[in-house]
């Protein structure tokens, strides 16, 4: 029984975490008024530079410093990518869909270019098994909760949860968070009371970038052992969770849970006895997360909870 709980509950957690962190990243960007369709690109950059560190230093460094280094590097990589979008969106007043698409195509190409020149191939493997915490003492023995949260997990899960809680606090309980949200609702009013709209949006994009990088690293670490220049559309899943969750952290959490469950079905259907015998072709399960996303965004109610000026560059001379 414990094994089943671990397989399903733990499996959900592995996808839940990156989607939650990615969703929070996008939440920050959109709340400040920047449309950030490039979460995918940000996640890929974080994932790439994170696992690159693991691959390069796995022999020379001890386990925990290496994980720490990878996380820091992935967050910096994400931050830089986020700033790239921020610069186009905030300073150049660019069409934000276009600059996002540019980043979403630029980052995978760059990672493949680097990986080809370093390793000679488009993709590279890495071993993450030594980061796996087989069982947290004491907490791992709690029934149900233990097998899900404290057995066979990565430290990134706990780091991610900590970040999410801190960021939730910052966004909703601090002056900075209030100012940041105001620039996404009425930037002219914010400006009139002395808040720098540009500074707020850059801050939001830096947070979004760093979190997106962490999300990408978490996703790749949790779900695979080979990096192929992609996070398989999970950045876009994180985006759709934000609108599904009506731009609220609690909603994003529920959305991430839903998609975590769906991806567990899609990746473990062959060992689940209930699904094994159904006459459904395997391709159905590969398509499932993407098809559900389509349905979810189609059914998402009107956007009256969305930040009012999301996607509009701020122009001082307008009123």
């Amino acid at each position: 029984m414990n094994a089943w709980i671990h397989l399903i509950g733990g499996g959900i957690l592995l996808v839940f975490m990156p989607l939650l962190i990615g969703g929070i990243a996008d939440l920050f960007a959109e709340r400040s008024g920047v449309l950030c369709m490039c979460v995918e690109g940000i996640m890929i950059s974080g994932a790439f530079f994170g696992v690159l560190m693991i691959r390069l230093f796995s022999e020379t460094m001890a386990v925990w410093p290496l994980l720490f280094l990878s996380i820091v590097v992935s967050m910096i990589a994400g931050l830089v990518t986020g700033l790239l979008h921020g610069f186009a969106a905030i300073h150049l007043k660019a069409e934000q869909n276009i600059s996002s698409t540019a980043i979403n195509t630029f980052v995978p190409a760059l990672t493949m270019l680097i990986s080809k020149s370093v390793f000679g191939t488009d993709n590279f493997t890495y071993s993450a098994s030594k980061f796996l915490i087989s069982k947290v003492p004491i907490l791992g023995d709690i029934p149900i909760i233990g097998p899900i949260f404290f057995q066979g997990t990565y430290a990134t899960t706990y780091i991610g949860i900590t970040f999410v809680l801190i960021l939730w606090f910052i966004l909703y309980k601090t002056k900075f968070g209030l100012q940041l949200r105001s620039t996404g609702e009425n930037p002219q009013a914010s400006d009139s009371v002395g808040i720098s709209v540009y500074a707020m949006r850059y801050a939001a994009m830096m947070i979004a970038g760093a979190m997106g990088g962490l999300a990408g690293f978490t996703y790749i670490l949790n779900t695979t052992y080979v990096f192929m220049g992609s996070v398989y559309g999970y950045g876009f899943l994180a985006l759709s969770i934000v609108s599904l969750g009506q731009w609220k952290p609690s909603g994003i959490m529920l959305g991430a849970l839903l998609f975590g469950a769906i991806s567990v079905i899609s990746s473990t259907y062959s060992v689940l006895p209930i699904l094994q015998n159904l006459p459904i072709p395997p391709v159905f399960y590969s398509i499932l997360p993407y098809a559900i996303t389509l349905i979810v965004v189609a059914l998402t109610p009107d956007k009256h909870n969305a930040p009012a000026v999301c996607g509009e560059p701020y122009d001082k001379s307008k009123r």
């Binding site: 150049l92 600059s99 698409t101 630029f106 190409a109 270019l113």
Partner: peptide, 24 residues
Amino acid sequence: VGFSPEIVKVISSVVVYCSALSML
């Protein structure tokens, strides 16, 4: 000459990014 053909994708995505400059 020792480079991945991906270099072309890098260039074309930079081109897309730079189309943001058209406004400037």
